[in-house]
Amino acid sequence: MTKEKEFYKNLEPYLNCIDYTVSKESYEVMHNEEYDMLVTSPLPVNLDKYYKSEEYISHTDGSKNMFEKTYQLVKSYTLNKKLKLINSLKTDSRTVLDIGAGTGDFLKTCKENKWTTFGVEPSIDARNIAKEKKIDLVENLESLGDKKFDIITLWHVLEHIPNLKQYINKIKELLKPNGYLIIAVPNYKSFDAKYYKEFWAAYDVPRHVWHFSKTSIKKIFKEFKMEVIKILPMKFDSYYVSLLSEKYKKGKMNYLNAIYIGMKSNIKAKKSLEHSSLIYLIKND
């Protein structure tokens, strides 16, 4: 597993974070001034084992407790918002590729609305759940061959990719000229990130290798002749992340404080435009 060496040059200490989900190991989150982004260091050789946790619910359809039930309810709402976004884009043939497709809910929604769907998901457990929904996913980008897509989406995936520029280059090869790339990532410049500091759940070390700002996303994709044409907020993320952050900070989910901080983050973002997570709509040349 490779990582982009240039992002690890001239780093300054920013925070020390703990992997609260799996290993309880400590990692440095370092600041790269050139790109205005943060990087996790050191990066484990075998990242796969850091995803093996029952608490890692993004690859499940669990609804065992109040937190998971709320997660699934919000997911249903956000799926419709995502569908509305791709429906607003002019495309040649309505083909969409979802990278990091999880259990296939986004593609299922797209398929039900007359999109031709393709998906990539490395987790075999998630692929099996998706297959039960009649959504067939492949394990990696190489399995897609020389297909070209109108729209490629990565919903909270890019921050997980160690070989970042190599991966973006492959995505560009899969995207049609004038096609659209949609990326959602956490924003470490949000109020909830600054409030929770090392307990901010969206650092999620070491699974999150990179921690992006608007500057870093624009700069990185400009190098591939791809332009950020719109930035949209993910307003529910501030509440979800705050709930987890409360648990990491205090040992339990303080729902009232999490709702308060999530709301405060969204209110402050009305002026700063620094929401907890951001969606970037990127146009290929």
Rank of each mutant, 00 (worst) to 15 (best):
G251R: 03
K9Q: 12
M263L: 13
I129G: 09
F236N: 10
K24V: 05
Y27L: 04
V205F: 02
Y280W: 02
N169D: 15
Y14M: 11
Q72G: 00
N10W: 09
K247L: 10
V138D: 02
C17I: 08
L174P: 06
P186F: 00
E68F: 04
L137G: 01
I259A: 15
L79Y: 12
L137P: 00
M226A: 12
D105M: 14
D105T: 11
T103C: 14
V96L: 15
D36L: 07
K5W: 02
E68H: 01
I171P: 00
V120E: 00
S213L: 11
I220N: 06
A201Q: 03
N284T: 07
T60Q: 15
L144C: 12
K9G: 06
Y56W: 05
K283A: 05
T70F: 13
E34C: 07
Y280I: 01
Y77I: 15
D285P: 11
N32H: 11
I151S: 09
Y56C: 07
A184L: 01
E25R: 14
S277W: 01
E4L: 06
A184D: 08
I261M: 07
I259G: 04
K134V: 00
E142S: 07
K219F: 07
F212C: 05
T153W: 00
E173C: 07
F236E: 14
K252M: 13
I282S: 02
M253H: 06
N128Y: 11
L89Q: 08
P233H: 10
